[in-house]
Design a protein around this nucleic acid. Structure first.
Lengths: 340, 340
DNA sequence: ACTCAGCCTGAAACCGCTTCCCAAACGATA
DNA sequence: TATCGTTTGGGAAGCGGTTTCAGGCTGAGT
C-alpha cells in the first residue's frame, strides 16, 4: 500500500497538518521544516490520495466529455481539441459515448454513477436531446452543450455557425465561380445539418435568380459509397458548363468525383464538385476539394474552456459561443482560387 | 449540496449502516425496510459520493488510456474500441495524450496527479519508451501496454503482429498476383513500423528469387502529399507489367494513385499499388485499395479487457496478447480478388 | 521582568461512506 | 420458562486528507 500523509509526517518528524501545508503551500511553513517534509515526500515517493482529497475539496480535477458516438473523424477531432485544452487548464478528460440502444437515462448513468466529474461537456444526438434535461439537472455539475441546446438545465453552449458556412459556399459558387446550375446532394432528409444546408442552397438559388429544380436535389446517407453509385448513374447528365454539385459532406463529394472519373467526366472542367466539413480526405483526393471547414477540434477546446471557467466561477451567467465555419477554396470548384 | 447517506437514513428512519447495506446488497435487510430506504433514495435523488466511496473501496471505476498523440485515425479507433469495452466492463475511460515537448515525467504526471485511476492502458512513443518504467512503477496500478513493451514494470501487453501482415501482403503480391518487380515506399527510416515492413519486403523478394534493387526503395514521411509529389516525378518509370508499389501506409498509397492518375498511368493495369493500415481512405479511392487491416479498435478493446481483468484479479501472471493484421484484397492490386 | 504581537506548529473536527462488532428481538427447542 | 440460534439494525471506527483553532515560542516594547 502506498505511503500516507501520516507516514510522511512521522518520517519528517512533524504533524500531518504541516505536511498538508507544505503540499498545498497555503500557509507559512518554516523553510527548514519545509525542506525536511519535501525530502520525506520524495523518500517515500508519496502522492496524496485523490479520493481523500476530493472528499474534502469536492473537486476531482476531471471533466467529462460525452458524445453520441465515437465513429468518424468529427468526434476524434473534438476529443483532440478537448484533450489539449483540458491539460492546459490542469484537468483530466473522462470520455464516454452513447452505445447503440442506449436511452438517455442509461447513457448518462454511465457517467453519473461515478459522480466525480467536476463538470460535463456533452453532445447529444437528435434522438436523445429531448429526454436528458431533468436527469442532467440532478447531476448538479456545470454543463456545456456542444452544437445544440438542452431544455431544463442551465448550461453554457458552443455552437458552429453552419448556416453562414453554407452561405459562404453558395455565394462563392454563384458569385465567384459563376455557377449556372447547382445540384444538391444531401444526407438523410431528417438530418438537421442537411436541412440547414439545403435551406441555404434553395434560398441562395432564388436570390441569385436561378430556377430551383426539385430533381436537382438528392438525399443519400453521407457515405462515399452511396455517392459513388449515384454518380455512376447520373454524373453524365449533370455535366455541363458552369454546373456544380454541392455535396453535404466531403465523403460524398469524394464519391461523386470518383464516379465522375469512372465515367470520364472531368472535374472540375465539365462538372465542379464541392463538399462540406473539410475532413482529411478533402486534401487527399484529386482535385483537392473546395469545402467548408468545420472547426470540430476548436469546438472541443472551446467547450472545455467554458467548462473549466465555469467550474472556477460557478455564478457566471451562462454563455453561448458561436464558432465560424470557414470556406476553404481548393481546386475542385474550378475557379482557380479567387475568393472574392 | 446534494443529499448524503445520513439524510437518506433520517428520512427512512433507519441507520446509515442499513442504507449502505441496501445500496450494496451485501447483507440481509428486511424487505419492508429495504423498500422504505429505496423510496427515500428516490425522493432525495441521492447518489453516493464517489470520493467517500473510493476512499473506502480503493476503487474508482475509472481506467486511464494514455496515448502518445491524438492525431489520426489510429488513435481515434483505439479510443473507440477502448470506450466500448470499458463500458461493457462497467468502467469509465480517462483519456490523455502526450503533448509536443512533453518529457516522460511530466507526461505521466498529468495522469498520475489525479491518482484515482484503477489502472492504465498506455501506448508510448518511440522516444519515450525508455524513461517511463520507474515512474510508472511508482504509480502502483495495473498497466497494459499497447503495441510495445516497457522495461522495469510488470505489465500486460497487447501487440499487433505486423510482421505477419506484411508477410501476407508480400506473399499475395509475389505468389497470387505474380509480381515481377516491387517498389517500396516507406515512412521515415527511423520508424520501427517502416523498418519491420521493409525487412519483410526485402526478405520476401529474396525468397521469391527476385533481385533487390536499392533504388526501388523510397523513404517519405507517411503523408499523402509527399507520395503524390514523388509519384508525379517517378511514376512513369515505375510502370510496367506486373509492377507493384508497396506503400507503408494507405495515405501514401492514395497519393501515389493520385499521382499516377495525373500522369495517365493506369492503376492497377500499368502499375498496381497497395497500402497498409486499412484506414477509411482505403475504401474511398478508386480503385479501392488492397491493404493490410490493422485492428486498432480491437487493440483498444483488448487492452481495456486485459486491464479490467487484472484489476479484478491482481495476482494473475502478466499476459501478452497478439492480434493478427489481416490482408484485405480489393482492386488496386489488380488480381481481381483471388486470394490463395 | 512582563506583556503582547507574530510566526509556526499540532490537535482535532470533519468530509461521506463501508464494515466490523454487538445488541435486540424473535421464534424454536429443551 | 430458560436457552440458544438467527435475523435485523445500530454504533462507531476508520479511510486519508484539509482546515479551524488554540497554543508555544520568540523577540520587541515598556
Amino acid at each position: 500500500m502506498p505511503a500516507s500523509i501520516e507516514d510522511v509526517a512521522r518520517l519528517a518528524n512533524v504533524s500531518i497538518s504541516t505536511v498538508s501545508r507544505v503540499i498545498n503551500r497555503r500557509a507559512l511553513v518554516n523553510e527548514e521544516t519545509c525542506k525536511r517534509v519535501e525530502a520525506a515526500i520524495r523518500e517515500l515517493s508519496y502522492r496524496p490520495n485523490a479520493f481523500a482529497r476530493g472528499l474534502m475539496l469536492r473537486k476531482s480535477g476531471i471533466v467529462g466529455l460525452v458524445l453520441p458516438d465515437l465513429h468518424g473523424e468529427f468526434y476524434s477531432e473534438i476529443i483532440r481539441g478537448a484533450n489539449v485544452q483540458a491539460r492546459e487548464m490542469g484537468h483530466n478528460l473522462l470520455i464516454s459515448s452513447a452505445m447503440p440502444g442506449d436511452d438517455a437515462e442509461s447513457w448518462l448513468s454511465a457517467i453519473g454513477q461515478h459522480a466525480l466529474v467536476d463538470g460535463l461537456a456533452m453532445m447529444v444526438s437528435d434522438t436523445m436531446v429531448a429526454g436528458v434535461g431533468p436527469t442532467l439537472a440532478q447531476l448538479n455539475v456545470p454543463i456545456v452543450v456542444l452544437d445544440d441546446e438542452i431544455e431544463g438545465v442551465e448550461h453554457d453552449a458552443v455552437i458552429i455557425d453552419q448556416q453562414q458556412g453554407a452561405q459562404a459556399m453558395m455565394d462563392h459558387l454563384l458569385k465567384d465561380c459563376g455557377a449556372k446550375r447547382v445540384f444538391f446532394v444531401g444526407g438523410l432528409e431528417t438530418n438537421i445539418d442537411t436541412q440547414a444546408r439545403y435551406k441555404v442552397y434553395k434560398d441562395s438559388l432564388k436570390n441569385a435568380g436561378l430556377k430551383f429544380h426539385k430533381e436537382d436535389v438528392y438525399h443519400l446517407d453521407f457515405t462515399y459509397e452511396s455517392a459513388y453509385r449515384l454518380a455512376l448513374d447520373t454524373v453524365k447528365s449533370w455535366a455541363g458548363p458552369q454546373h456544380f454539385v454541392f455535396a453535404a459532406n466531403d465523403e460524398m463529394a469524394a464519391g461523386i468525383i470518383a464516379g465522375a472519373n469512372a465515367k470520364s467526366v472531368e472535374v472540375p472542367k465539365e462538372l465542379a464538385v464541392v463538399g462540406f466539413d473539410d475532413t482529411r480526405v478533402a486534401q487527399m483526393i484529386q482535385p483537392p476539394l473546395t469545402t467548408v471547414h468545420v472547426p470540430m477540434s476548436k469546438m472541443g477546446a472551446t467547450a472545455i474552456e467554458l467548462l473549466c471557467r465555469r467550474i472556477a466561477e460557478p455564478e457566471r451567467a451562462p454563455q453561448k459561443v458561436s464558432l465560424e465555419a470557414e470556406l476553404v477554396v481548393r481546386s475542385s470548384c474550378g475557379c482557380g482560387g479567387k475568393k472574392d
